[in-house]
């Protein structure tokens, strides 16, 4: 851009020198037109600038720590007019670690779409939030930078800890059986008196004939315990990442066994209990996203400090976190 200004200033000086040396009308016209050129450049660039939208999107929704992940700055132009040079700044913040960084990006728009990828190996876990803080395009003479409209300011990328090998949950006594809600077929059943509203196909006709009153089969099912996985959301970052890795391993194991579970931690500052009921992969991702979206202080309030939670399994850090 400096070179373009130098060229323009030299051109303008030449036009002025022409005006000084040439006494006819031509020199005045040339000088006036040369002086107007920057304004013309701005005007001609306006359709392209106004018709272009810039946005930032994550290349993936989630990656694992140590994998390549990143964002893409995208330009879309409705009129399809080119923009020779576009520059912008992307702010990247890791909500988990609290760190942030900036990246400069340069690209050009030749047609209706253009994109520039910012990709790197993700060394830290966390919910990465990228934001296009500024984006500018140069005018058609290369003299002025004009701001482009931005849409969809932030983009998020979840960097997950690698799943640690799943751990065995401690064995617990069989809690027994209970009537299955809604009935249905089953091996175990308990006879009881008919209540109005029971489906007729549950009537045990043989017993009913014997007793001369309606008896129905009430199907029974085993009662299961919903394990609650606890962890502390404070401490050295690596330790917390390791804990989350174990959480991820255990969670995936439970989900593979179709066993719902819950995850709970205490907000380190306020002590408020945060609990997520996880019944499927989507719910588990939401839980991990929430865990990785909160900053990790060095110290804080432990989940164990609150009321006792039944069926809880505390995931302690092997790096010396309080267990």
């Amino acid at each position: 851009m400096v070179s373009h200004w130098i060229i323009y200033i030299l051109t303008l000086l030449s036009a002025i020198a022409f005006r000084v040396a040439y006494t006819g009308w031509l020199a005045g016209i040339v000088l006036a037109f040369t002086a107007l050129l920057p304004l013309l450049g701005l005007l001609v660039s306006l359709p392209a600038v106004l018709g272009t939208r810039a946005g930032l999107a994550a290349l993936q929704e989630e990656v694992e720590r140590g994998e390549q992940g990143g964002w893409e700055v995208r330009l879309t132009s409705a009129p399809g007019l080119p923009l020779a040079r576009v520059k912008g700044k992307v702010r990247l913040a890791n909500l988990f670690t609290g760190e942030s960084a900036g990246e400069r990006v340069k690209l050009s728009l030749r047609g209706q779409r253009a994109g520039k990828e910012l990709s790197q190996v993700q060394e830290q876990c966390g919910l990465m939030e990228g934001r296009l803080s500024s984006i500018w395009a140069v005018d058609c003479l290369g003299l002025f930078w004009l701001p482009l409209r931005r849409e969809g300011r932030t983009a998020r990328l979840l960097v997950l800890p690698p799943a640690a090998p799943a751990e065995e949950l401690p064995r617990q006594a069989h809690p027994g059986v209970r009537p299955r809600p809604g009935g249905g077929p089953g091996e175990d059943y308990d006879p009881r008196d008919y209540r109005p509203g029971d489906p007729l196909n549950t009537v045990h006709w043989k017993l009913s004939a014997k007793r001369d009153e309606l008896i129905v089969r009430e199907t029974l099912e085993d009662m299961h315990i919903t394990p609650v996985l606890l962890f502390d959301h404070f401490g050295p970052r690596r330790a917390v990442e390791e804990v989350l890795g174990r959480l991820r391993g255990m969670g995936e194991m439970l989900l593979s066994q179709d066993r719902p579970f819950a995850v709970a931690w205490a907000q380190p500052v306020t002590g408020e209990l945060r609990r997520f009921e996880v019944a499927d992969e989507r719910g588990f991702r939401a839980c991990l996203r929430a865990a990785l979206a909160e900053p990790v202080p060095e110290t804080g309030r432990s989940v164990l400090d609150g009321a006792a939670i039944p069926n809880a399994h505390f995931l302690a850090s092997e790096r010396g976190a309080e267990g």
Binding site: L37, A84, S108
Partner: peptide, 21 residues
């Protein structure tokens, strides 16, 4: 002058600026 930068960077597509210029 007004379209030269676009033509240089966008090739033939840069000619789209011509009517405005």
């Amino acid at each position: 002058a007004l379209r030269s930068l676009s033509c240089r960077t966008a090739g033939k597509r840069g000619a789209a600026v011509t009517p405005y210029a």
